[in-house]
């Protein structure tokens, strides 16, 4: 009897050791997104937040590059967060919002419309950067199911070791340093970039094969609207300033029609450029694709005023809990601006 127990104990220890080693291996080989492709850290960083947000941004790189929550708080007292990620597809935006609503109660959700041009899953690498960092729940499962490209397998999202195991031969010091804890790379979801790479030319846009945004995208936009409506949230649609990729008038017309039919605010900031004051000689970090911090602050300053004009948002600068957190973050933000 004693021998049987001994065997079970040995087997149990062996099983635990194996699982533990596999967990450690998985932790080690997963990309840390600390010094390259840092936007891969954004999804996960959201869960560090302790306070509620009144405005939540969702969308692709145009939200995490072009809007500065620091400016929104400093100038208007708006507590906001950007749940953005690279090439975030509309169904992923939906999942990230659904996931955020488990703990967050925003009054306004701002969705950047550029990614609506994609009606199908695009890139495995971007899928991983958006989805891997999500906490487990229905939203993540839905995001996986709707995002997988050819050749991807759902099990690799459950056990990312099965996807990233091949990194074993390219591990760096960073992988070991960030084994337990990663450094934050954003300021409330905003990726600060100070470099200036002015626009040198405006490429001629290719003719559209289909003048309309994909049907799938529009259906997801409808779902996004319904989700916001069911939570009493105002959905705002925005097209961030950019020179490339080109935002077609035909696509804009689709969004305008959607916004009008649903009675929601849509702003195409490309058309508002002069009012906002974006200068593509000084305010872009990559020749017109994304804004740098100077451009992001200009856009946020204008956008915050518009938000306050249209929606009843509280001024969190008088709230001690918010002040403590945001003051420290703004100080870090300013230091980063100065040192970058």
């Amino acid at each position: 009897m004693k021998a049987v127990w001994k065997k079970w104990i040995v087997a149990g220890i062996a099983a635990l050791l194996t699982v533990g080693l596999l967990w450690a291996a998985q932790r080690l080989v997963m990309p840390k997104y600390q010094s390259s492709s840092i936007e891969g850290s954004l999804t996960e960083e959201y869960y560090r937040e302790t306070l509620n947000h009144d405005v939540l941004f969702i969308g692709d790189c145009e939200v995490f590059s072009n809007f500065s929550p620091m400016t929104l708080y400093r100038e208007y007292g708006i507590a906001s967060y950007i749940r953005g990620s690279a090439q975030q597809l509309v169904w992923q935006s939906y999942a990230l919002l659904e996931d955020a609503l488990v703990t967050d109660s925003p009054s306004v959700v701002v969705f950047n419309v550029l990614a609506l041009k994609y009606g199908e899953p695009q890139s495995e690498a971007y899928n991983r950067m958006t989805i891997d960092g999500m906490r487990w729940g229905k939203a993540k499962i839905d995001a996986i199911q709707s995002s997988m490209t050819d050749g991807e397998e759902a099990i690799t999202y459950v056990f990312p070791l099965l996807r990233f195991h091949d990194r074993w031969s390219e591990l760096t010091v960073e992988d070991f340093r960030c084994f337990f804890e990663k450094e934050p790379v954003s300021f409330s979801g905003y990726l600060l970039r100070t470099e200036v790479r002015p626009v040198t030319q405006t490429p001629t846009p290719a003719p559209l094969t289909d003048p309309h945004l994909p049907q799938t995208s529009m259906e997801w936009l409808e779902k996004l609207y319904t989700l916001c409506e069911s939570h009493g949230i105002e959905l705002v649609l925005v097209k961030s300033p950019s020179i490339v990729p080109h935002w077609y008038d035909e696509w804009d017309a689709d969004i305008v029609a959607f916004a009008n039919s649903h009675g929601i605010w849509y702003t195409n900031t490309i058309a508002q450029n002069d009012e906002i004051g974006i200068d593509y000689e000084t305010d872009t970090c990559d020749m017109g694709q994304h804004l740098n911090v100077a451009g992001a602050e200009k856009l946020s300053s204008w956008f915050g005023a518009e938000l306050l004009r249209r929606y009843d948002l509280p001024d969190r600068r008088t709230d001690d809990a918010y002040t403590a957190v945001w003051t420290e973050q703004i100080e870090q933000y300013e230091r980063a601006k100065a040192t970058e």
Binding site: V10, A11, A14, L17, T18, L21, L22, A25, V29, E124, G151, E152, E153, T156, L161, L162, R163, H165, D166, W168
Partner: peptide
């Protein structure tokens, strides 16, 4: 025996040439 099974499993999963892109 268990150490051998565990080692084989872990090395297959980590060093194996499989998965997306392979």
């Amino acid at each position: 025996r268990l150490a051998v099974y565990g080692t084989l499993l872990i090395t297959i999963l980590v060093l194996g040439y499989y998965g997306f892109g392979f």
